[in-house]
Amino acid sequence: MTESRESAVTGQAWSSHEGAAALAAPTSTEKRRAFDGRILLGFFLPVAIALLWEGAVTFGLAEGRLVPPPSRIIATLSALAQTGELWTHAWMTLWRVLVGFVIGAVSGIVLGALSGSSQTLRQLLDPTLQALRAIPSIAWVPLFILWLGIFEASKVALIAVGVFFPVYLGIAGAILSVDRKLVEVGQVFRLSRVQLARRILLPAVLPEAVIALRSGLGLGFMFVVAAEFMGASEGLGYLLVDGQQMGKPDQILAAIIAFAILGKLADSLLVAATRPLVRWQDIVRERL
């Protein structure tokens, strides 16, 4: 008797708990559903266009010679993958971007840190670097070829130049914009210059540094195409040029898709590698 009443009471309590939960919960579940929906929404347009085009070519409404239907692009991609060509080209491109990115990013970080942390060095370095930045990077190509030859060195140099400037600007700007209030906390605890750099400046700069590196990486991929256009026998850029000269639009599109996938993968890798460093940030980064 008492038990049943008790259970009735707890049952009631439960239901009221659930009521409370139901009152509180919708925001989170709704958010999740809306979020999932939005991801699917992003797929809708490209998939619809691909299906429409596929249908149009299949039913003879359009001729797929210059704009090949998705099925032919996929077939080309898998053929390239089967012969192993795709991997050689993709690997070559990745290697160039990687080497160029490392050189460009390291020099960008070093010079950016120097010019961000010392006014004298900034006045010494910055005008020259800004002037160099104003030159379109592609304009260096002829000079690089004369200086470094037509092989890898000139290509890597071009990519490094492309990566350097956004990283340099990002790092220097990030250091200059570190909150004075946090620096004062370091001063109050009498940190030396080195300690201040390590314990306050470095962590404060990290989020913006990651963004600078990401935009540097993006430019690296942009410039690897330019570099491979100027004469390469391997690389995804070569596939593009080859496709144009041989009249194979499916190969061009296959290479473009490969670029998209590589670029996205590289960016995600960079983000994943740096996430532990900036986990403390009070932002909605997951959405980006």
């Binding site: 209030k181 946090l182 004062e184 906390v185 306050i200 962590p203 404060a204 990290l206 403390w280 940030q281 009070d282």
Partner: peptide
């Protein structure tokens, strides 16, 4: 302001 270091 609290001026806590957000990464600690």
């Amino acid at each position: 302001e609290p001026r806590l270091l957000p990464w600690l």
